[in-house]
Design a protein around this nucleic acid. Structure first.
Lengths: 139, 139
DNA sequence: CTCACTGCAAAGAATTTGCACTGAA
DNA sequence: TTCAGTGCAAATTCTTTGCAGTGAG
């Protein structure tokens, strides 16, 4: 339950809505869009509103408790974040999102690009897509 | 002018609107959002409409003449694409976008992630952000 | 001459804001 | 008790669709 302490320490209140959003995301395992969070959250908290979800996601994202993931089509979903800078690989069949850590290979790549382009890189957006083990089974 | 031939070969017409959108993007060098393309395009083609820009971008993106780039905040812009699968590095100061090719390092990274996660990767979204050479000068 | 393409208006989504009420601390 | 947080309604964007007129081939 350490995220609750993190919230409190940062001066924010631990409310039912925030608990529900976190619980829904923790249970889901796949990236959810705001309206999907609403549907699932309503089961747990009748009066939950979409506006609150937007505001909650903005807060949780700012605190790095939740991460926003992109899709090529421009839609984005939200997933629970692990501590540290990580990236996601998303199954295009079932939507399952798995985090993986950045390794030396990313740094090597960034260094190469810095040399090739003359840029100084200070942020990166990396997301992979493919088939998860379970969906590969079904082929 | 080879993009015009590509359009024609694919059975699409080379119209003024499409020429204007391409020219604006080629001139810009930085990723532009639809409404920015409209503003600049109007200078060249008075009656240009936003709807046409959306439709044109969808077409050009499908033909891989233009690429969509993402920002963490969810906004996205469009830039001229070079042939082949490339990635972008975007200057957070001036917005300048530069393409760079994927090298062995990306394949190595993907292979590592496949081994670690069991996924079979078939697509990736990689975008870097930082300071371009010109903006670094000004520091 | 035809039909793909365009612009406009209007519909639909996605997201944000204003405001009075509610509940966590 | 107090003020951050909430829900609702309405305002903003952002993007897509329907349709009649226009122009590329």
């Amino acid at each position: 339950m350490e995220w609750e302490q993190l919230l409190a320490q940062a001066g924010f209140r631990v409310t039912t809505s925030r608990r529900v959003v976190m619980q829904v995301l923790q249970t889901a395992g796949v990236p959810l869009e705001p309206h999907e969070i609403l549907e699932r959250g309503r089961c747990l908290h009748r009066s939950l509103g979409l506006v609150t979800i937007y505001r909650t996601l903005a807060l949780l994202t700012a605190l790095d408790l939740v991460r926003r993931v992109h899709r090529q089509d421009g839609c984005h979903g939200y997933v629970i974040a692990s501590p540290g800078h990580r990236h996601h690989i998303i199954c295009r069949q079932c939507g399952q999102a798995t985090e993986f850590p950045g390794g030396d290979d990313i740094h090597a790549l960034i260094e190469r690009v810095e040399n090739e382009t003359g840029y100084r890189v200070d942020d990166h957006l990396l997301q992979l897509a493919g088939l998860c083990p379970a969906c590969r089974e079904l082929r």
